[in-house]
Amino acid sequence: MAIRKIVEKGDEILAKKCKPVKEVTKHIQTVTRDMIDTMIEADGVGLAAPQIGIMKRMFVCRPELEDPEHNYVFINPEILEKEGEQDSMEGCLSVPGYIGHVVRPEKVRIQGLDAEGEMQDLVFDGFAATCICHEYDHLDGILYTDRSDNVMTNEEYAEILKKQEEEER
């Protein structure tokens, strides 16, 4: 396994639409393992193939806060259903140092191949749904900053949280 270099905002690869994976080969499996290792090393909750310079429709994530060791692999994913709406504050390994407000579905149903090439059909809600939608967007060349109505530095966001905390006292 290897830690891959994460592509950052400004690189045109992040704005391009990815191509489907034709077959889940040993090479694809190695790439997904590298993606998981890279995501964990960077302390992220998700990583899409274009973020490491690979223009294939696949991403990895660990969106369940109660089970952070459980990694999902989605190859050629399709979001089949979206339900509800929620506000989220999102960051991204490709946009370090920033966070932004995005409105996402509260619940999603996604289908795609796992690392062994087996079809999976799963439902996620809350933070996990946000994570799935965020990574899925990467496959279509969309960053959270393209959807956000308010992007700020991590420091600015920390100040807002601090003020809110003081007001609640």
Rank of each mutant, 00 (worst) to 15 (best):
I3H: 07
I3P: 06
R4C: 09
V7E: 09
K9D: 12
G10R: 07
G10N: 08
I13T: 07
L14R: 07
V24E: 09
V24R: 10
V24Y: 10
T25S: 14
K26C: 04
H27V: 13
T30H: 11
T32K: 09
R33Y: 10
D34C: 08
M35K: 11
D37T: 13
T38Q: 10
E41S: 14
G44W: 05
G46M: 10
A49W: 01
A49D: 07
P50S: 13
Q51A: 10
G53N: 01
I54V: 13
M55G: 12
M55P: 08
R57P: 04
M58Q: 11
F59D: 02
C61K: 00
L65A: 14
H70C: 14
N71Q: 10
N71C: 15
V73I: 10
P77G: 00
E78Q: 06
E78L: 03
K82R: 14
K82P: 12
Q86C: 01
D87C: 10
M89C: 07
G91T: 00
L93I: 14
L93P: 13
P96I: 00
R104D: 01
V108R: 04
Q111W: 02
Q111A: 13
G112Q: 06
G117A: 04
E118C: 08
Q120Y: 01
L122F: 03
D125Q: 13
G126Q: 01
I132H: 02
H134V: 13
E135Y: 05
Y136R: 03
L143K: 03
Y144T: 00
Y144A: 03
D146A: 00
S148W: 04
D149W: 00
V151M: 06
V151E: 00
V151T: 11
N154Q: 03
E156V: 02
K162D: 07
K162R: 12
K163L: 07
E166S: 05
E166R: 12
E168W: 05
R169N: 09
R169G: 04
